[in-house]
């Protein structure tokens, strides 16, 4: 996967690049409007992560430029601007998604993967991890070809964890992904525990390996340990 990150905040940019590049993803950085525009012109990417407030110009203009060039890159806007008109403007201009800062890197990755999947396979909606396969449209999961029944939340959780395979995903990130803002943090951790427990049980009972590990009480990691 080849990504372009247009972001002026170096601290954040470093973290994002670090998070993405571990599994072989190439992630280039443009620190301002000018270099962003140049890179968009010269190269092709799978997805562009676009900050809106950039030195040298508004990120939305970069988006316009991109659409004028008729490029097919997926665009994910990452912005601290949480006003509705910015969000609508961004999406109307052809952005695929809009993520408000602050966000969890795992959330960012899940969204980027979703965008790239939509763009690349043109309608293939399957997420496959070893013996586990999830169909995103039909919302069903098979383990070694045998269908298992998951609740909506368990399904979302599985897709989220698979997108962040090999990473420690914090409980906070999971909670925000599954419930958004509607619940206080204190409400959510018990539910996460329940959902994780059920998901793990269902997968293992259907014959999958136990890929889910609790990490230091802070979060969970999904992945085959070498």
């Amino acid at each position: 996967m080849k990504l372009l990150l247009v972001e002026d905040e170096t601290g954040l940019a470093e973290s994002i690049i670090g998070y993405f590049s571990e599994d072989g993803t190439v992630c280039e950085l443009a620190g301002d409007y000018g270099s962003g525009s140049e890179k968009i012109c010269m190269y092709d990417y799978d997805c562009i992560l676009l900050d809106l407030s950039l030195p040298g110009g508004d990120g939305l203009r970069l988006l316009e430029e991109l659409k004028r060039m008729d490029k097919q890159e997926g665009v994910l806007i990452i912005s601290a601007r949480n006003s509705l008109d910015d969000r609508l403007k961004g999406l109307n201009l052809g952005a695929d998604d809009y993520l408000t800062k602050p966000f969890h890197l795992s959330e960012l990755k899940a969204r980027v993967i979703a965008i790239v999947r939509r763009k690349q396979f043109g309608g293939s909606n399957r997420v496959i991890f070893n013996e586990i396969a999830a169909d995103l449209l039909a919302m069903n999961v098979t383990v070694k070809g045998v269908k298992i029944t998951l609740t909506r939340k368990e399904f979302d959780l599985l897709v989220y964890l698979v997108a962040n395979q090999g990473k420690v995903v914090s409980k906070n990130a999971i909670a925000e992904h599954l419930w958004g803002d509607e619940m206080d943090l204190s409400d959510r951790f018990d539910f996460i525990y329940t959902h994780i427990k059920n998901l793990r049980k269902k997968l293992v009972e259907a014959g999958a390996k136990d890929y889910l590990k609790s990490m230091y009480g802070v979060g969970y990691k999904f992945g085959s340990e070498e």
Binding site: E9, L12, S15, Y19, A80, F103, L105, K167
Partner: peptide, 11 residues
């Protein structure tokens, strides 16, 4: 956002 991402990285 920086704090959050650094925490995620730290993890």
């Amino acid at each position: 956002a920086v704090i959050n991402s650094k925490l995620d990285t730290l993890l």
